[in-house]
Structure formats: structure tokens, C-alpha cells
Computed example of a mutant assay.
Amino acid sequence: MTAPAIWLLISIGSAAVFGLAGWWMKVSQMRGGSSTSLLLGLYATGTAGFLFQCVADGSWTDALGWKAWVAGAVVGAGSAWGNVVFMQALRYGPASLTSPITNLNIVLVVAMSVWIYGEPLGGWEAAGIVLLLAAAVLIALRRSEPLSIGDRRWFLYTGAAVVLFSFRNGGLKVTSELGLPSSSVLLTGYFLSLLWFAAAALKERSGRKTGSAAPQFSADEWSIGLRLGLLAGLFSYGGLQLYAWALETGKAGIAAPIFATNSLVVAAGSILLYRERLTRLQWLAFACLLAGLFVIKL
């Protein structure tokens, strides 16, 4: 198998594996799990995964340097704060509009790869990227949900989510160009995110014990979120590590749009296990995914 075919398979694998992290997050939501304990568990096992990766590839010494911590802070903020502001955006606007617009952060990554790092982009590759972006946008659309925006704060949170997720998805390309091992950057990023959500979890648990605030989640809901979050973190680690390898060995302008289609894994799981029916637009999203991958290989 040729080198281009290998990094393309790695890109597809990154979307599939990271999509499984999103799937377990959906399962937690369906079972009423706590979002705080979910993210705490996700970043706990994710941090453990990247620590193992650093020891395995010998990059743990790089994780001790200030460059890895600065880069990790940027990538980690893109991951953790991106999730936080995205959830806030969902409070003030419809998911069927919020998710597609947030996915457009990939456009910024593609533009950076082509204009700043000079990655060549052929006609077939550009067509494939457009199809992949269409898949990422169409999968979240719901005709039954009104698309009106009643609160201006939605624009602020959605815009912040686009920028922050660009830091995560594009930041790994920048650190790769700077020669920083991806595993060390992701280790520091996930560790800082773990500290953030550990503080949030401690505050929530303390409020429940003292009665100073009404408990948002029961003990069972907390346990469900934590257990499924720990599981999701393993796939989050695996997916992001594969994505980082794809960026190092291939074209970020193609790897990033492929990675953005990870939400289709959640849709597929919903069909198989929760018997959810996809809309015509979502079936079109799957068709765009397959067509995009086919065109890119031409």
C-alpha cells in the first residue's frame, strides 16, 4: 500500500474512532448522565491515554518543556472550552443550526493549510473537500426544528465555538510544523482540561453536599456520566492521536474535513441501536461522505 493511501486510511480511522467517543457521549445523554462527570471522565482517560502514548514513543520529555505546555494550553482550550461554549450555544439556538455552523471551523483549517503552509490542492481534492463539508453540515440538520434565533448570545457562543474548535483541529497542524510531538501537546492539553473539569465537578459535588445549591444531577446520573465518560475518553484519545498522525504524514486540508465527519458515526449508531430514522438530508450526508472519499482518491 502506498504512503498516500496509508495516511488517507489513518484520516478515515480518526473520524471513525473519534466518532465512537461522540457515540458514548450520546448514550450518556440518552440515559440522563451528568454532563460534568461525563467530561471529567473523558479527559481523565484521555489524559491517561496520551501519557501512555508519550512513554511509548519517548516524547514524555518534550511534555515537560514550556513549548508543549503553551501549545497544549491552546489546543486544550480549543477542546475543553469549545465544548463548553458549544453547549451554551445550544441553550440559545437550535441544534440543527448550531452544529453545522460549528463544523465550518474546518474551512479555517483548510484555508490555513493551503494559504499559510502551501499545501497543493487539486481539482478533484477540492471537490472531495466540498462533499465532505456538505456531509458534516447536512448530518445535523432537522427540518422539524425551527431555525429562528431568539437570543443574540447565540451568535457570540457559536462564533466562539468555531474559533475554539479551530484551535484544536488546526492547532495540531501548527505544532506539527513546529516539530512538537503531537502526543506531548495532547497530553498537556488534556491534562489542563482535566483540571478544569475536576474543579467544576468538585464545585458541583460540594454544592450538593452542603445544600448551598440545588443538585442538578442525582448520584445515579453522576455515575452514568462518569462511567460513560471514561469510556468515551479512550476513543477521544485514539481518534485525536490518529488525526495528529494524519496531519503529520498527509495533507491537513484533506485530513481535517474527513475528521469533521465523525458525527456520522453517532448517526449510524442511532440507527442501529436506538432505531432512529434519518431524514432525507441525513441520508444525503452519508452519500456526500462516500462520494467525497471516492473523489479524493481519484
Rank of each mutant, 00 (worst) to 15 (best):
residue 166 S to H: 13
residue 181 P to Y: 03
residue 108 L to T: 04
residue 111 A to I: 15
residue 110 V to R: 00
residue 187 L to R: 05
residue 175 T to V: 10
residue 94 P to S: 09
residue 123 G to K: 12
residue 117 Y to N: 01
residue 144 S to D: 15
residue 181 P to L: 04
residue 172 L to S: 04
residue 146 P to F: 14
residue 96 S to Q: 09
residue 172 L to D: 01
residue 153 R to T: 12
residue 91 R to T: 10
residue 144 S to N: 14
residue 166 S to F: 15
residue 84 V to G: 00
residue 184 S to K: 06
residue 130 V to N: 02
residue 155 F to I: 14
residue 110 V to T: 08
residue 172 L to E: 05
residue 183 S to A: 15
residue 139 I to Q: 07
residue 132 L to D: 03
residue 93 G to R: 05
residue 93 G to V: 03
residue 112 M to P: 03
residue 116 I to R: 14
residue 149 I to F: 07
residue 179 G to Q: 11
residue 170 G to E: 08
residue 95 A to Y: 07
residue 177 E to Y: 15
residue 175 T to M: 09
residue 174 V to E: 06
residue 140 A to S: 14
residue 135 A to T: 06
residue 162 V to D: 01
residue 85 V to N: 00
residue 146 P to I: 10
residue 159 G to C: 04
residue 190 Y to E: 04
residue 106 I to G: 03
residue 144 S to Y: 10
residue 95 A to F: 10
residue 96 S to R: 04
residue 166 S to L: 13
residue 100 P to D: 02
residue 87 M to K: 13
residue 134 A to F: 12
residue 158 T to F: 06
residue 147 L to E: 11
residue 153 R to C: 03
residue 153 R to G: 02
residue 167 F to Q: 03
residue 96 S to K: 08
residue 148 S to C: 09
residue 97 L to C: 01
residue 187 L to P: 04
residue 154 W to A: 05
residue 163 V to P: 03
residue 111 A to L: 15
residue 160 A to S: 12
residue 185 V to H: 06
residue 165 F to W: 15
residue 136 A to D: 08
residue 125 E to C: 00
residue 140 A to L: 08
residue 168 R to N: 14
residue 160 A to T: 08
residue 143 R to G: 04
residue 88 Q to N: 05
residue 175 T to P: 03
residue 120 P to S: 06
residue 108 L to R: 03
residue 140 A to E: 07
residue 103 N to E: 09
residue 117 Y to R: 04
residue 154 W to I: 03
residue 115 W to K: 13
